[in-house]
Design a protein around this nucleic acid. Sequence first.
RNA 1: GGAUGGGUGGCAGAGCGGUUGAAUGCACCGGUCUUGAAAACCGGCAAGGGGGCGACUCCUUCGUGGGUUCGAAUCCCACCCCAUCCGCCA
Length: 428
Amino acid sequence: MLDLQLLRTDLDRVARRLADRPFNLDAHAFRALEDERKGVQTRTQELQAKRNALAKQVGQAKGRGEDAAPLLAEASAVNEELAALENRLADVQRRAQDFLAVIPNVPHESVPAGRGAEQNVEVRRVGTPRTFDFAPRDHVDLGAAVGGLDFETAAKISGARFALMSGAIARLHRALAQLMLDVHTREHGYTEVYAPYLVNAASMFGTGQLPKFKDDLFAVPRGELGEFFLIPTAEVPVTNIVRDAIVPLDRLPLRYVCHTPCFRSEAGSYGKDTRGMIRQHQFDKVELVQIVDPARSYEGLEALTGHAEAILQRLGLPYRVVVLCTGDMGFSAAKTYDLEVWLPGQNAYREISSCSNFEAFQARRMQARFRNEKGKPELVHTLNGSGLAVGRTLVAVMENCQRADGGIDVPAALWPYMDGVKQILPAR
RNA sequence: GGAUGGGUGGCAGAGCGGUUGAAUGCACCGGUCUUGAAAACCGGCAAGGGGGCGACUCCUUCGUGGGUUCGAAUCCCACCCCAUCCGCCA
C-alpha cells in the first residue's frame, strides 16, 4: 500500500511513475474522494466533540444534583445527526481504503521503464553454457530415461500440472532443498523457519496477494470463519511474522529462510509451459526473507540476490541476472532482480529466482514497524527472494549435468546429501 | 467437540458506567549526583488521523463486530484468539 500522505502531496509524480507499469491512477477520482473524506471527517469530528462535551456536562450536572433534562435533549439531537455522519464517514473511508489497496508499488528510480520481459535489463552473466557433443535432452526425456519423474501418474492422482517423483530423482530434489537450507543458515546468517502452509486473508492482504490476485490462489473454505488460502510462496507466512509488531532496532535485520511447498492456480497461463515441471500447481521453494531498516534495504537486496546466486554457483549452473523493468514487476515490488538459469533443454535462460525489495509497501499493509533511534515506531522495509525454486533447480541440474547416455552426473555440492550417489544412471 | 479462566500501552499489571488515554512497576529518553559507571533522586515517555504558519487543538483506538446509554475499558450479545482440563486424533 502506498503512503496516503505521498498521494496527497505528490499525486501527479506518483501517477506518472505508475503509468510505466502500466497502472492508471485515477487522479481525479482520488482528489474527489479525498475532498469528500475531508469534508465528512471534519464535520463528524466537530459533532463528536460536541457530543463529548455535552456528555461531560451531564455528568457534572448530575454530580451537583441539578436537572440534566435540557442537556439530555440536546445530546439526543446531536446524536441523531451524528449517526448519519458516522455512517457516511465509514463509507468514504472504506472506499478510500479499497482505492488504495489495489494500487501497485511505485518503482524505484533505478528501475528501467518498459512494458514487458523484453525490456528487462541484463546485469551480469555468470558461467558459460556447456557445449554438448550430443543432442541434449530436456528434463522430461531425461526423467523418462532414468525413471522417477512421472507426469502421467501425477495426472491420474491430481490432474495437469503436477509431478510425481520417486527414487533417485525424489532424493535429488530433497538434496537440493537441504543444500539450500544449509548454505543459507550456515553461511548467510538466516534463521530456519517452519511455517504454516494455510494462511488467513489478513496475511494474504499483508504481502499483497489480496485483494487483487485472489484468482491465483487456492482457497480452502472453513465455514463461518471464511477461508484459508494455500500459500503461493513462503514469503506470505514468513513476512507476516512481523505483522502488527514493533521490532526493536537492535534486532534488525531479521533474516529468515523457509522451505515450503508453494501452491498456485496458474489461472490465465493455459497452454504456457505445459511440458514438464517448469510450471506446476505445487512446487517446493526455499525462500529468503529479510526485515530491514529502511535506510539499508537496497544494500539488503544486493546481498539477498547474492545469497541466491551462491546456490547456483555451488551447483555450477550458468545463469544471468536481470533487473525487471517497470512493466514486468510484481504488484508489491519496488525493484526486482530475476535470476535466470540456463536450460539446455529449452536453449534459453529461465527464471529460477526472483529477489525483490518491497520497501514499506508490505510493511504498511501489515503495520510492521521497528523502533527507530528516536524511539518512534517506523515502518520496516521487507525483502524476499527465492533461494531457490527447488523444482526448477532440479530441472536445471538434470539438463545441465546430463550425460550422453541419458544419465545425470550429480554435482559435487550435493554428494553429501546423496548417500554417495554421484551418478544417476539410465534405467535398464 | 465439552468445561473453566483470560485478552488493557514496548513488556508486566490495576481499573465502583461520568475529569481514565487509562494507576503502578519494568524498559526507554533527558537531567541532578559521580573521576567514570552503578545506585538514588527529579522530569519525560502510546499509536493513528483531522484542523492550524505556529503556540496549539480536536477525533479515534483497552481482541473483533454489534447493542444498551446523554456518556462504555467498565453492562449485554455474537464471534475470534490464548491458557488449562476432559474427549478425539497424527
